[in-house]
């Protein structure tokens, strides 16, 4: 039954899928050597601390629909303002364990993170464990600054739609 629904959605949304691919581009092809994340992201954290900005590939599906695995990149930098809810950050939630997720709650020094594509699981860390804040979302064909008002509106709307996120993600998956 679920498979049938997926197939129907995929068929119905094929024009939207075509539009998305045209607008955002598709996964770049070609062989890549991947440096393990705990090593690379530790280096990314150090370079951001030194005052650089860092461009990294997005790995994983937990930031759907805003970031797609190995299709999109993000630019990370040191935050120039206090962190706030809605910011996507790279944070070390355990020794050598990094996540690129969005802040959903700040209580003093304690930060609660949740992936846009997650249905309920959250992580917590301290303010000092935030390695960098996402300043730009890089798709194969366009770059969107994190300050883009339309993007911010979409992020807020996505957060409000948490109760029906499972269904929305099912629809989204039919468009990629």
């Amino acid at each position: 039954m679920k498979k049938a629904i997926k197939l129907i959605l995929r068929f119905l949304l094929s024009p939207w899928r075509w539009f998305r691919k045209k607008r955002d581009g598709v996964l770049p092809s070609g062989k890549r050597h991947e440096v393990p994340n705990d090593i690379l992201l530790g280096l990314v954290r150090d370079m951001i601390r030194e005052g650089h900005t860092a461009t990294i590939w997005v790995k994983g599906f937990s930031m759907r629909p805003f970031l797609e695995h190995m299709r999109d990149k993000v630019i990370l930098a040191q935050p120039e303002r206090p962190l706030q809810e809605g910011d996507a950050v790279l944070a070390e939630i355990g020794p050598g364990h990094y996540v690129l997720h969005r802040i959903i709650k700040i209580e003093g020094e304690k930060i609660t993170l949740m992936g846009d594509g997650n249905l309920g699981s959250t992580e917590t860390c301290r303010m000092k464990h935030v390695a960098g804040i996402v300043t730009h979302y890089i798709r194969p064909k366009r770059t969107i600054p994190a300050t883009d008002e339309r993007l911010i509106r979409r992020i807020k709307r996505w957060r409000r739609l948490l109760p029906c996120r499972r269904f929305l993600l099912l629809v989204y998956k039919s468009t990629i």
């Binding site: 280096l43 650089h52 860092a54």
Partner: peptide
Amino acid sequence: RTLCDEHIIVGCGRKNIDFSKVVN
């Protein structure tokens, strides 16, 4: 830069470091 037996070349001379193109 050598980290945990991985030798990575990083372009440190630039403001933005593109880790999507690191050389191992």
